[in-house]
């Protein structure tokens, strides 16, 4: 798997800083599963975070803070690796991070000819919706622009648009006025994880007719 399209550096930094909302976080984490280069970049930023933390001016702790923490130590149970896994709602989808596989997901549902959507339910409120989108080979997606942004992580198959060719592991960020005309060019279905904020604005007559059906 050769990855050609990566998230912009600001997003990787915000991920490492813990500043992304959960929906965006899920999209970046999904890209990281397949991308060693971006994993290294995130790791480096975590080390920058460590240096930043160590370099912050100290704020004096309240009197007795250490004593009261020390008094609580005996009651603490040492953490072990990870808690037992819950039933996995998305266990059958390859390419997702483990924690996302455990989220509940709805069934695939038809949203347009040759296109199905499967919503992923986040455990926390997020202004970003996350879903899987499955499109059949040869599907030409309706041109659209965004009122917010849309992050796509290709899990399988591939698509092409003016910005390039996107295969498994690739990350595509659509913002604002990007005019997307997307063509699924893989033989098999193309499955993407999408994190989306705002609404799609579909262009053209058919788009306007379909819009009420595609309230995702």
């Amino acid at each position: 798997m050769t990855i050609h399209h990566h998230p912009p550096e600001e997003l990787l930094t915000a991920f490492a800083a813990g500043l992304l909302d959960l929906g965006q976080h899920v999209a970046i984490a999904t890209h990281l599963v397949g991308c060693a280069r971006c994993r290294d970049a995130v790791r480096a930023m975590e080390h920058v975070g460590g240096a930043v933390l160590a370099g912050l001016l100290p704020t004096a702790m309240s009197g007795g803070a250490l004593a009261s923490v020390e008094a609580g130590l005996d009651r603490l149970v040492a953490a072990t690796t990870s808690p037992p896994r819950r039933a996995a709602g998305l266990a059958d989808v390859p390419g997702l991070p483990q924690f996302v596989r455990e989220y509940p997901a709805g069934p695939w549902r038809w949203i347009a000819p040759k296109v199905h959507l499967r919503p992923i339910q986040l455990p926390e409120a997020s202004s970003t919706r996350v879903f899987l989108l499955k499109s059949r080979s040869g599907t030409k997606m309706i041109e659209h622009t965004h009122t917010g942004f849309e992050m796509s992580c290709v899990l399988s198959g591939s698509f092409v648009h003016a910005g390039g060719h996107f295969g498994p592991g690739d990350f595509d960020l659509g913002e604002g006025d990007d005019d997307h005309e997307i063509m699924i060019d893989s033989q098999d279905d193309c499955i993407c994880l999408i994190a989306m904020q705002g609404d799609l604005k579909l262009n053209g007559m058919i788009g306007r007719l379909l819009q009420p059906l595609i309230r995702m």
Binding site: M1, V33, A36, D40, A44, H47, G95, P97, Q98, F99
Partner: peptide
């Protein structure tokens, strides 16, 4: 914590040692 735990995918990490990452950042 699990939300930051990313299993390595098919490609292993490039493998700069931690001390190398630390000293580069420093």
């Amino acid at each position: 914590d699990p939300e930051f735990h990313v299993d390595e995918g098919p490609l292993p990490d490039a493998g700069l040692a931690v001390s190398q990452v630390e000293s580069r950042v420093r």
